[in-house]
């Protein structure tokens, strides 16, 4: 029967091609623990999180993907573990990073975090001056009547972050805005409820940010993005 021959031929072609495997140094295999973090950064992560030349590693082009360059290593490790464990559940994390990180080993996570924390971050340009000024003020002074403390208190005078507290400087404005919105969503969900399980929240590890984000208006969240994305 012709179809049987077809099946056998295509199967044989698949298996023959399968014999042509090459080394691990250029692998895009997310299920092989022997592929190093540096290789994954080059072969896989760089597709979205920034490649070469002017977009040096870790400086993504599309704000859909956060910049990783210069990020705190401890924070990067924590987030990759959250993607791996599905405890960070904002929509884009589910759409992309759950899959990417599902077979990450602790060694790969450590290598990736090491790689990206050592890249040079590049700020964005072209922000509206008025928004930058508004974000600058909130960053340094907070919005005290809304219960929003000065961001610099935790994130550092230059928004450089500290260990598990992420670097925000140079981050894409849209990414900052969307994450503040995620924290706000969690705050709105938990308001008036007791003992909300972490599994109900999109970013339970960001609990400290929930009330803060909720205290910001939509424009103020945009302003934070504009200001932070302009910082070196």
């Amino acid at each position: 029967m012709k179809n049987i021959k077809t099946i056998l031929t295509l199967s044989a072609m698949s298996l023959a091609l399968g014999a042509c495997s090459t080394g691990l140094d250029k692998s895009r295999n997310l299920g092989n623990p022997n592929v190093t973090g540096n290789t994954l950064a080059q072969q896989v992560c760089s597709v979205c999180h920034g490649g070469i030349g002017n977009d040096v590693n870790g400086n993504s082009v599309n704000p859909r993907y956060p910049k990783l360059a210069g990020q705190q290593k401890e924070y990067l490790v924590a987030e990759m573990n959250e993607f791996h464990n599905h405890t960070r559940k904002d929509p884009m994390a589910q759409a992309m990073m759950w899959g990417i990180a599902r077979n990450f080993t602790p060694k790969q996570i450590d290598e990736l975090a090491n790689f990206y924390s050592n890249q040079k971050p590049i700020p964005d340009s072209g922000q509206k001056a008025a928004l930058v000024a508004e974000g600058d003020k909130i960053f340094h002074e907070g919005v005290l009547d809304k219960g929003v403390p000065a961001c610099m208190g935790c994130h550092g005078a230059n928004a450089e972050g500290n260990g598990p507290i992420p670097r925000l400087a140079s981050q894409h404005a849209d990414y900052i805005y969307k994450q503040l919105s995620v924290f706000n969503t969690d705050e709105v969900y938990t308001e008036g409820k007791e003992n909300v399980p972490d599994s109900d929240l999109e970013r339970p590890q960001g609990a400290v940010m929930e009330g803060i984000a909720h205290g910001l208006t939509e424009q103020q969240r945009r302003a934070m993005g504009a200001y932070l994305s302009s910082l070196h």
Partner: peptide, 11 residues
């Protein structure tokens, strides 16, 4: 999909 690190298919 993926067959090896360098070879894949769409059928």
């Amino acid at each position: 999909g993926k067959i090896t690190d360098n070879v894949g298919a769409f059928m």
